[in-house]
Amino acid sequence: MPEPRTDLDAARRRLLDTDFARPLPDTVVLTVRGEIDTLTAPAFTAAVTELADTPEPTLVVDLTGVRFLASSGLAVLINAAHRVETRGSRLRLVAVTRAVLRPLEITGTEQLFDLHADLASALAGGSD
């Protein structure tokens, strides 16, 4: 039974939600909600790439609403962190859930990011 493409598209929309905001001058926040896996990785990649392409110096990915993060999504974040680093900056992550913190911890990739427990602290800058 060939799978109708629309099923996959519907599943993608159900699983992941991305939004951009500019709450402060020079600051862009990408808010991600849902599950980042092989199905939603393309949408997540597109959103994170768009973020990393913006000229603003302060870039934040708010992962508070992320319930699952697969290695495919983690690889996207790592690439973005490296790109932001070449501009002399650090990618800020808002990470609260075990679903996000555990993959960062077990792969030893936490130190690539400025981690924050909430958006206010990420906007204020520095590192937790």
Binding site: P2, F68, L69, A70, S71, S72, R98, A99, R102, P103
Partner: peptide, 26 residues
């Protein structure tokens, strides 16, 4: 424990995604 639950969920996801990639259609 909570970390082990999270790890198993991620490991199973990774294994299944890897296999779906090479699976025959249908």
């Amino acid at each position: 424990d909570l970390d082990a639950i999270s790890d198993l969920r991620m490991a199973v996801d990774e294994a299944c995604a890897t296999l779906v990639d090479v699976a025959a259609p249908t």
